[in-house]
Write a protein that binds this DNA or RNA. Structure first.
Length: 404
DNA sequence: GGCTCGTATGAATCCACAGACGCGC
DNA sequence: ATGCGCGTCTGTGGATTCATACGAG
């Protein structure tokens, strides 16, 4: 089950798209998710190499396999000393080079040489006509530069990014960001002449790459321009889901828990990352997931995220609240050009764009039991209700007609 | 501004039944 | 500890009903 790409059925599945509930090879992943702006938002990650049906959340460096939460839990007892590395998720249409960088452990892992994933990256069918120089010149690990898909970042963007860096640094120092127990972390923004932002920091950086944050002010306007004026009016539960991912969290919860998880500072979009589908189905007890993805979207069309730390995904599973609950004031209340109210002239535009997106939003239903679905798909009905086998019916899904 | 009415939209409900699940033996 | 039988629960899709929101008069 699930060893083959759900789309082409030929290649081996490499990545898992939770929005589509599908395992895809890299080529189909790119084909499917380059179709439109909405599909580009789908967050994907490696597929679990054990069950091949769930998104991988961690990489066991000892066994050299990517595992979902369930398989990780099943295969690694709490006493396990296996070293694990969080698995990044991404959205947009990253190039093979970018994927290589996102999943750098595959490159570091000699056993991954010739693996399906690596082969998939090598043979991505869509031409990377915008192959970017994703590596810093010195190749320093942990430093990712993601220039714009269309062009290098403008000076304005760089300024905004610089603003964010300052803001993030202040937030981190204030312990406002997840994983900020590393109180000593520093982040230094270093603009480059080519217009590519580069960011370096210290120890915490490997687990929390803030420099990959997109600063799409357009998104910021869209998401929060109107909401700031009247969040109760603009947002409801589905809005939260649609804007921030599949949280099972009401807006009131969101407000109580703080917009931190769904907050945007300068266009930063946070979303739950890489948790397995099982947890997605059972998020009732765990309203939020602690993992944060920072989405790079507006400019590059490509986002990249990383779990906040090793095995952090399960640490808060049962707490019923996000660790971000104590993160203090909402970022949008913070001072700074990006957190200020948008101009009223753009507000209506933002609302219009938001409503338009809401219209076209696709609500995907997760089917847990395919067998039941298959049976329901062929079951005869009367006025939509199932009937006993052999009873008179007015609708037969097989005939797509009445009483055929 | 407040009220009523019509329209639009989304959520909840119902149905049968295979399979999952828990429990006792 | 394991396997079996039995009863209960779950979830699946389409049509319908109900609740809510909104605009017009």
């Amino acid at each position: 089950m699930g060893y083959r790409c759900d789309f082409c059925g030929e290649q081996r599945s490499i990545v898992y798209c939770r929005s589509d509930a599908a395992s895809l090879c890299l080529s189909c992943d790119r084909n499917v998710h380059s179709a439109n702006a909405l599909s580009k938002r789908h967050s994907r990650t490696l597929v679990c190499e054990r069950c091949n049906s769930q998104p991988a959340s961690v990489r066991c460096m000892e066994e050299r396999v990517s595992l979902c939460h369930n398989c990780d839990w099943a295969g690694h007892s709490s006493s396990s000393t296996h070293k694990k590395q969080s698995v990044n998720c991404y959205s947009g249409c990253p190039s093979s080079a970018e994927l290589s960088h996102i999943w750098s452990f595959l490159l570091d892992d000699p056993s991954a040489e010739g693996s399906a994933c690596k082969q998939g990256m090598d043979s991505m069918s869509i031409t990377d006509n915008k192959l970017r120089d994703c590596q810093d010149n010195d190749g320093s690990k942990g430093v990712v530069t993601l220039p714009s898909e269309t062009s290098n970042l403008s000076n304005v963007d760089m300024d905004k990014e610089a603003d964010w860096m300052e803001l993030s640094a202040s937030m981190q120092n204030a312990g406002l960001l997840a994983g900020s127990t590393h109180s000593a972390m520093r982040k230094v923004y270093v603009p480059r002449e080519e217009g590519i932002a580069e960011c370096k920091d210290t120890e915490f950086y490997d687990n929390f790459n803030v420099d990959e944050i997109d600063l799409g002010i357009e998104n910021y306007d869209e998401l929060f321009g109107a909401a700031l004026d009247n969040p109760d009016r603009l947002f409801d539960n589905e809005d939260i889901d649609g804007l921030f991912g599949p949280h099972d969290m009401s807006f009131s919860d969101c407000q109580a828990a703080h917009p931190t998880e769904g907050s945007a500072v300068g266009g930063i979009k946070m979303q739950p990352a890489c948790s397995n589908a099982a947890s997605a189905d059972s998020v009732v007890s765990c309203k939020t997931e602690p993992n944060i993805c920072f989405m790079r979207q507006a400019h590059s069309g490509f986002s990249f995220s990383r779990l906040t730390g090793e095995s952090s995904g399960v640490d808060y599973q049962d707490c019923g609240a996000s660790p971000m609950l104590n993160m203090g004031d909402p970022p949008w209340g913070l001072p700074g050009p990006e957190s200020a109210m948008p101009p009223s002239s753009s507000r209506s535009d933002a609302v219009m764009r938001y409503k338009e997106k809401k219209k076209t939003r696709k609500f995907e239903k997760k089917v847990r039991y395919e067998t039941r679905k298959a049976r329901a798909d062929v079951r005869r009905r009367v006025k939509g209700r199932f009937i006993k086998a052999g009873d008179a019916y007015d609708y037969d899904p097989l005939c797509k007609s009445r009483s055929c």
